[in-house]
Design a protein around this nucleic acid. Structure first.
Ligand SMILES: Nc1ccn([C@H]2C[C@H](O)[C@@H](COP(=O)(O)OP(=O)(O)OP(=O)(O)O)O2)c(=O)n1
Ligand SMILES: [Mg+2]
Length: 752
DNA sequence: ATCCTCCCCTAC
DNA sequence: TAAGGTAGGGGAGGAT
């Protein structure tokens, strides 16, 4: 099963020297199978890597004579790259004898971060692969990933700092509370200034690009820059229009981490009840622990002394007012709001300043003629607000505008989800590109679940899909104007295995029926988290991992076996320690599991290149990691599709994954053949029928003469589908059916 | 009523 | 070049 043009060794040309494992000819085959090529004779012009296990003295000497030497790499590089499903950096595999040679430093060049494998010579940047072919380097450089994942790590800091034996505030309930809010001033920017003292007093913005014309986003900026209107989230080019003297500064992620730890250790000296908000911000409950102003000044002095950065503090009797006080305190100050002052404070406050009222809500309030909290007070009733914002949100705005907030400062909060996503640099050509990226995201999710010692039962796929008429995004490699879609599966037992998660995510991707070329973002989220790890889940986990078992089937098998109350499992085997009962799985899950069985059946049946005749380009069978690996352990027996396809058309329609593929098939098909297929398949293969319906509708919308059968043919088919689906399933069409036709449009808040 | 899924909004 | 993530709150609307 070659990966064709998408092979991981695309652009790699090897020459094998001496005796190796795998052998000469095995390596040749492996390269052919994974998109690379092989030279029998060495040529420094063509060969990109010499593969060699043992370098003789003579060979070493010869190598040293080369002015522009080709890297000499151990065969494990090839083997392990294949196992990893991607081109690994070869630097670690450069032979030691070469590595140690002085003057050869050009050799094991560290791969450029954005370049997936570190191929030394002109990598063919050809069509096919995703532009962002290295998920790791994205995460390494993403500031939002950095601040987003920091909270999980803060938990460790908090736990460790418990040994400091911090003072405990009065127990909750005893009113009134004394709450402090702490926030580092222009955090990233002030670190930049600290690292580069010459920036002191200048307008500074932190972002990746130095280029004035760049589309890099500003992460943080100094207060000098803010005077010009520069803000976090702006593009550097726009910021420079506002402030020509703006100085760009880079990120210092390790420093942020160190400083954040200092912040939390400092805070925990003052109170045991610290609620982390973010990398640079937290609440403290200091009820009964002393004078708030003194505590704040103590924190500020200690922190400044240890880090050279300033924090500002707000004090009041609740979290809301403490936070609002901090915004008045900034930069480098303390501000307190007493109970009797609070009304006066809120009166003139813009609604946008209420935490929880963002861009969208403030716009809606503006339309209602509300600009300040005072305006909100004059609204006739809370009910009116709740009508337009919903019960909770309406009440929140109503209360917050009056300075009312009954939340308690909580030092421990339970996580409800773990996820990873990428919405930048995503440009796929083939479905396998998306599958590959999902695999990496699943690994990332697995790492985080394991680190936290948790598993989850619900797997959600998040997808950003380019809007039909979206203009090219202004941001370099940005997602632009998208529809956001998500689909989820709930398993019967909690999972943390990357392989399993990836499989489910891929199945969900297929369910969404997206054209891979339109995908602009992908994410995986795990919810319904379980702290405990039942033994049965462990057993199934082991099997799923080693045998590449599909998780959902695993679930189904367990449930099915229990339902039959029969003895040994019919297939797939190895199940002891049953813990899942059919009655534990709700009806929706059962229905979904059944429909997934169908999907999986088709996925596993051999998919030769049915579309080549219909679609103008090659389509390989879908494959993922498990397919390429060795095959220990039991495997689900391959299933043949139950109705034997009667014609190429039927086969193509039955095996198409996406409505655009179906559309391509329809273009050359005859109406009567399609009708016949619908009649035959409507009971057995609803999935394909839905897909057909979407394809028909999109073709009908796409103008006349799009198909050989013409408009009447399409109309006939659509009518037939509606009727027979209704007959067979006697109900309304599932909501899904409408989706491919026109994804619900929201006038996105995207920064166009 | 309550739950579930999918979606939007918000904050850093 | 550039790195538009992560998590929680909560609403709409359908199923139970
Ligand atoms: N859109 C944003 C917002 C914040 N951050 C990062 C950089 C900030 O330095 C840090 C903390 O966010 P704050 O909202 O606290 O902003 P600052 O600390 O920079 O400024 P302030 O003085 O207003 O707190 O998070 C970011 O990368 N992108
Ligand atoms: Mg800050």
């Amino acid at each position: 099963a070659g990966a064709g043009e998408g092979g991981i060794f695309r652009g790699v040309v090897i020459h094998v020297n001496g005796y190796t494992t795998p052998s000469h000819s095995e390596l040749k085959d492996l390269m052919a199978e994974h998109g690379g090529s092989f030279e029998n004779y060495f040529s420094s012009a063509r060969v990109t890597h010499v593969i060699c296990a043992n370098l003789t003295d003579a060979k070493l000497k010869q190598h040293q004579k080369e002015k522009n030497p080709v890297p000499v790499v151990h065969p494990n590089w090839v083997v392990e790259s294949i196992r990893a499903g991607r081109l690994l950096p070869f630097a670690k595999y450069v032979l030691d004898r070469i590595r140690k040679e002085p003057g050869q430093s050009v050799l094991p060049v560290a791969p450029r971060p954005a370049a997936g494998g570190g191929t030394p010579k002109k990598r063919s940047r050809a069509e096919g692969g995703d532009l962002l072919n290295n998920v790791d380097s994205f995460f390494k450089n993403s500031r939002l990933h950095f601040i987003g994942s920091w909270k999980a790590k803060i938990e460790d800091v908090m736990a460790a700092a418990a040994s400091l034996d911090p003072p405990k505030p009065d127990p909750p309930g005893a009113a009134p509370r004394r709450v402090v809010h702490v926030d580092i001033d222009c955090f990233f920017a002030s670190v930049a200034v600290r690292e580069n003292p010459s920036l002191e007093g200048k307008p500074v913005a932190v972002c990746h690009s130095e280029s004035t014309k760049g589309t890099a986003e500003i992460s943080s900026c100094s207060y000098e820059a803010r005077k010009f209107g520069v803000r976090a989230g702006m593009r550097i080019s726009d910021a420079r229009d506002l402030c020509p003297s703006l100085v760009q500064a880079p990120y210092y992620f390790e420093k942020y981490q160190e400083i954040s730890v200092v912040l939390y250790r400092t805070l925990l000296r003052s109170s045991a009840r610290v609620q982390p908000v973010s990398i640079d911000e937290a609440y403290l409950d200091i009820t009964g622990l002393g004078d708030p102003r003194e505590i704040c000044e103590d924190i500020r002095a200690r922190f400044l002394g240890e880090t050279g950065c300033t924090v500002s503090c707000g004090c009041s009797h609740n979290m809301l007012l403490a936070k609002i006080a901090t915004s008045r305190a900034k930069p480098n100050g303390v501000f307190a709001i007493s109970s009797d002052e609070s009304e006066a404070f809120m009166a003139d406050l813009a609604v946008r300043e209420i935490p929880g009222v963002g861009w969208k809500s403030s716009r809606r309030l503006e339309e209602m003629g509300v600009a300040t909290c005072g305006d909100l007070w004059r609204l006739s009733s809370k009910t009116a607000l709740q009508k337009s914002f919903g019960a909770k949100q309406g009440e929140l705005i109503w209360d917050y505008s009056r300075g009312i907030d009954s939340r308690e400062v909580k030092s421990e909060t339970k996580r409800h989800s773990v996820g990873a996503e990428i919405n930048w640099g995503i440009r796929f050509e083939h479905r396998e590109d998306a599958v590959r990226t999902l695999g990496k995201l699943a690994e990332e999710v697995e790492r985080r679940l394991r680190r936290a010692g948790i598993r989850g039962r619900c797997i959600t796929l998040k997808l950003k899909l380019r809007k039909p008429n979206a203009p090219p995004p202004p941001k370099f490699l940005g997602h632009g104007w998208c529809d956001n879609l998500s689909r989820s599966v709930t398993l019967a037992s909690a999972a943390d295995d990357a392989g399993l998660i990836a499989r489910e995510a891929v199945a969900l991707l297929l369910r969404l029926d997206a054209d891979p070329r339109e995908i602009r973002g992908l994410g995986i989220q795990i919810t319904k988290l379980d702290e405990g790890q039942p033994a049965a889940a462990d057993a199934s986990e082991g099997r799923a991992r080693s045998g590449g078992q599909p998780g959902i089937l695993d679930t189904f098998m367990k449930a099915g076996r229990r339902a039959e109350a029969a003895g040994p499992s019919s297939s797939g085997g190895g199940g002891r320690g049953e813990s899942v009962r059919l009655s534990d799985i709700d009806v929706n899950e059962q229905k979904y599991i059944l429909s997934m069985i169908q999907v999986r059946q088709r996925e596993q049946s051999k998919r030769k290149h049915f579309f080549e005749g219909f679609v103008g380009r090659e389509r390989g069978a879908a494959r993922w990691r498990g397919d390429a690996e060795g095959d220990p352990g039991p495997r689900e027996p391959p299933r043949e599709p139950s109705p034997e396809p009667g014609s190429a058309l039927a086969a193509a329609l039955g095996q198409a994954r996406f409505s655009h593929e179906v559309a391509a098939v329809l273009a050359g098909a005859e109406a009567k053949d399609v009708v016949e297929w619908v009649l035959r398949s409507v009971e057995s293969d609803l999935e394909s029928i839905w897909r057909l319906l979407r394809a028909v509708r999109s073709l009908r919308g796409g103008g006349p003469e799009a198909t050989a059968m013409g408009a009447e043919g399409l109309e006939e088919i659509e009518g037939l589908i509606s009727k027979s689906v209704e007959n067979v399933y006697k109900g309304t069409l599932p909501r899904d059916v409408c989706r491919g036709v026109g994804v619900e449009c929201d006038d996105s808040h995207d920064k166009v």
